[in-house]
Design a binder for these strands. Structure first.
Length: 849
RNA sequence: GCCGGUGUGGCGGAAUGGUAGACGCAGCGGAUUCAAAAUCCGCCGGGGCAACCCCCCGUGAAGGUUCGAGUCCUUUCACCGGCACCA
């Protein structure tokens, strides 16, 4: 049966939708628009179960919205630039372009049998010149609007591959590909000034009502607003043209405990001192090393160098604090200099202990001499602290109030300046890579950096490149770099950096509204289709992709490419869980793990040899662990509807779902059963109504109500449970042919978003009009949702002891009488009195004795 | 370290403060069959009872609010996720 569904029914209906243009979106009609979007895939060449789950969820929403009278836009594209294509080219000698487009063709062919309601006419890949040319236009507009700039930045440089590496590509200080020691090199790079929008991006989070709280929190933490104060400490000897060291502190209340200053090895003072001192130069070089990876930071020892300089404490002029260069002070946060208060900051304390610097407890009451041990004293912001604040005089307040009072006190005396700072940095977009969108600027000896003329766009990637030598092929291409200056016309050189691929995915949602336009967007289309009503994707994009997209929506508004209402591009966001699977493992003769594909294992043993396998609990499907199930083989074996039904059924969509062979089998069986029941109903002779008609129709209306609620609230697993229940009812019902036919057609409709092919088949079998894909969603009759009688549980002292069945509108007084006459109640009372009797109409009764 | 989330049968998971365990998987029993597959029917948290009834216990742990708590509050444990030498 499932073979039939897979091989005959599914292709038939896919062809029918295709022919009818069912999912072609157009900006017309008086229906409300609805834009549903799933995060577009990277064309790796194979779809995986995670894709199936993601796109199925979007498809359920899209199909449900079509049925409820919306004009739906549901597009699909390819996030097609990026390193894997270049790596493949380096490994196999092919071309990234061929590799990518072949993968797209393969994946599209794997995706189409899923029966998704996608408007394929809007498909594009970000590596299409038509797309990246418009991205270049956008870049030029952003450059003109001051949203992009160039500056020197310290980057991870792989000297073998001759490229910049992202932090996560540096492992133990070595390049992940080359294994070479990574340098920290200062290069001129392009940046989006996203940090200028820190406050805006932070406060606007509040408006994202239909985003998961978790994602909003992660974004807020990433932006990392902090309130503090800038304080100047006069230097004993002016250095690097500076009279004093400025530091930023969020804890000015601890100023009394300041015992030394620490500056970053990259601080101008440190750099100046390094020029005249080989020791300092050596120290700074050493301190800068250590890499930027997480482990490296975790393990990093405190390193320090006493410069011999001192600064004067701004409040107590008799105190001179030594200035140290310290490896734990970062140049790109705050001012690159800190005053250290070891008593109230763990890092400062660790440093002080290591280098024998004094520790003064700023929170001591007069006369108290509380000594700080190995742990710094750090009160919570809401905790009331009791101590003499040595300058403001506040004695007992929350730490938060003390900090605010300290800032005010310092400001009033001109000693400090209250400040708000953010963790968010500007977004470096330059990549020394071939397979990305060329940055459309030209370097001219006369005119400097000049944006390319828009009529010259797209600046295409040259096809004739080689990957046999490391480095950026654009850099060493014989002719590509040569061009005429757009401003003066003299010979000039192109920028050879390409854009971070996150740029490509930061505006594709807008491009889908007019995917083939000669401008980045068309205002009328954007005005009509934006915003994305429902965006669906993995939690792994909670921060960067979504933050960048929010920034781009603002940038595109400033540059006139999006309407004001699209300032937040995604009205609702849903982050779905992963598809997981058990891992099957044996060990080789050396005890090393050997993993096995699920299809090679049966009943806990290898099919081939019968050797028992170790079963490791379910984890994210991964090729290296071989715990993968190929959607293509599932679709071939069981059909797309089975795969769709299963990935929706077992777990709530935001959680992980474990793929099991028995679960997939069960899904296939169930769908076959529904088809069988429908066949029986279709073949039923009309015998007239029976006594069971009403029961069946009541169940139908309840199911309509509950499934509708489930789909509306992303409760797909609960909706499917209701559909199972209704199928059981239908299968056992002795209702007449007409009622059964009605119930079966409703079942098909309710299942249609999840199992569209099967539903079309049943719809046609029972004489439904047109395609079920466009049939109006069934409505629950409110009157049919309420039974004539209700069964009320009777609790005695809060424990269920009995129940009574009464007419639905029986007055409470009469219910009480019946309850008091109930056998279980009488027995429990033993002739005693009822203390209290609670009747919740239509719900429950509680007898308190 | 800071911020957040989640803990319910053998398993995945249901449950607007109102009958805990819907629905599915696995398991057990039965029907059908020469037999199997497929299908259909039934049972299925733990304990007490010969047994239906019935009684006791049960949503990580301990308290609390309430007629009534998986759900609300306090404390606590475990696991998961995000951020992090961010001053």
């Amino acid at each position: 049966m499932s073979r039939t569904i897979a091989s005959e029914i599914e292709p038939k209906w896919q062809a029918a939708w295709e022919q009818a243009g069912t999912f072609r979106a157009s900006r017309s009609g008086d229906k409300p628009k609805y834009y549903v979007l799933e995060m577009f895939p990277y064309p790796s060449g194979r779809i995986h179960m995670g894709h199936v789950r993601n796109y199925t969820m979007g498809d359920v929403i899209a199909r449900y919205k079509i049925a409820t009278g919306h004009n739906v836009l549901h597009p699909m594209g390819w996030d097609a630039f990026g390193m894997p294509a270049e790596n493949a080219a380096m490994a196999s000698g092919g071309h990234p372009k061929d590799w990518t487009y072949q993968n797209i063709a393969d994946m599209r062919a794997q995706m189409k049998p899923l029966g998704l309601s996608i408007d394929w006419s809007r498909e594009f890949a970000t590596c299409d010149p038509e797309y990246y040319g418009q991205q270049q236009a956008l870049f030029i507009d952003m450059l003109a609007a001051g949203l992009v700039y160039r500056k020197n930045a310290v980057v991870n440089w792989d000297p073998v591959d001759m490229t910049v590496l992202a932090n996560e590509q540096v492992i133990d200080g070595k390049g992940w590909r080359s294994g070479a020691d990574v340098d920290r090199r200062e290069l001129t790079q392009w940046f989006f000034n996203i940090s200028a929008y820190s406050e805006e991006l932070l406060t606007a989070i509040d408006s994202l009502d239909s985003w998961p709280a978790k994602v909003k929190l992660m974004q807020a933490n990433w932006i990392g607003r902090s309130r503090g104060v800038e304080i100047s400490f006069p230097l004993s000897t002016p250095t690097a043209g500076l009279e004093s060291l400025v530091c930023y502190s969020t804890r000015p209340d601890t100023l009394h405990g300041a015992t030394f200053m620490a500056i970053s090895p990259d601080h101008p003072v440190a750099k100046t001192l390094a020029e005249s001192s080989a020791d300092i130069a050596a120290f700074c070089l050493e301190a800068r090393k250590g890499g930027t990876t997480e482990e490296a930071i975790e393990k990093a020892d405190k390193k320090g160098f006493d410069t011999g300089l001192t600064v004067r404490h701004p409040i107590w002029p008799d105190r001179q604090l030594p200035v140290w260069i310290a490896n734990f002070v970062l140049m790109d946060y705050g001012t690159g200099a800190i005053y250290a208060c070891p008593s109230h900051d763990q890092r400062d304390l660790d440093f002080a202990v290591k280098f024998g610097l004094p520790v003064v407890n700023a929170f001591n009451m007069p006369g108290e001499t509380n000594v700080i041990g190995k742990e710094a004293l750090v009160p919570g912001k809401d905790v009331t602290v009791e101590y003499v604040n040595h300058f403001t005089g506040l004695v007992r307040a929350t730490a938060y109030d003390v900090i605010e009072a300290s800032i005010d006190w310092l400001e009033a005396r001109g000693l400090g300046k209250g400040q708000v700072r953010y963790r968010l940095r500007d977004w470096g977009l330059s990549r020394q890579r071939y397979w990305g969108c060329p940055i459309p600027v030209v370097h001219c000896e006369n005119c400097g950096v000049v944006p390319e003329k828009k009529e010259n766009l797209p600046i295409r990637l040259p096809d004739d490149v080689t990957f046999d030598v490391p480095g950026n092929p654009l850099d060493r291409h014989p002719t590509w770099r040569n061009c005429a200056c757009p401003s003066c016309g003299k010979p000039a050189r192109r920028e050879t950096d390409t854009m971070d691929t996150f740029v490509d995915s930061s505006w594709y949602y807008a491009r889908f509204t007019a995917p083939h336009a000669a401008t980045p967007t068309v205002m009328a289309d954007a005005e009509y289709w934006m915003n994305v009503d429902q965006y669906i994707g993995g939690i792994e994009h909670a921060i960067l992709h979504l933050l960048y997209s929010r920034f781009f929506a603002r940038a595109m508004q400033i540059t006139g490419h999006l309407p004001a209402k699209a300032i937040e591009p995604f009205d609702a966001l849903f982050t779905q869980g992963m598809v997981t699977h058990e891992i099957y493992m044996t060990r080789d003769e050396n005890g090393r793990p050997v993993y096995h594909f699920p299809e090679d294992v049966e009943n806990g043993a290898l099919k081939a040899t019968g050797e028992k396998v170790e079963i490791i609990p379910s984890a994210k499907m991964s090729k290296s662990k071989k715990n993968v199930v190929d959607p293509v083989s599932i679709v071939t074996t069981y059909g797309a509807d089975t795969a769709r039904w299963f990935v929706l059924s077992d777990s709530p969509p935001e959680r992980d779902v474990e793929w099991t062979a028995s679960g997939a089998e069960a899904a296939a069986k169930h769908l076959a059963r529904v088809l069988r029941i429908a066949g029986e109903v279709a073949a039923m002779a009309d015998t007239g109504p029976t006594a069971e008609d009403t029961d069946l129709l009541r169940a139908m209306h309840k199911t309509i109500h509950e499934v509708t609620q489930g789909v509306e609230s992303f409760g797909f697993n609960a909706a499917i449970a209701r559909l199972y229940g209704f199928t059981n009812t239908l299968g056992r019902s002795g209702a007449g042919a007409a009622a059964k036919r009605q119930a079966t057609m409703a079942l098909a409709q309710l299942m249609a978003p999840m199992t569209p092919h099967l539903s079309e088949e049943i719809w046609a079998m029972l004489g439904g009009e047109g395609l079920i894909a466009v049939a109006p969603w069934p409505k629950a009759d409110a009157a049919m949702l309420i039974d004539d009688t209700v069964t009320l549980p009777i609790q005695i002292n809060g424990k269920r002891r009995s129940e009574i069945t009464v007419p639905k509108d029986m007055p409470a007084a009469e219910v009480e009488k019946l309850v008091l006459a109930d056998e279980a109640v009488v027995r429990a009372l033993e002739g005693g009195a009822v203390k209290k009797l609670i009747v919740v109409p239509g719900r429950i009764v509680n007898v308190v004795i």
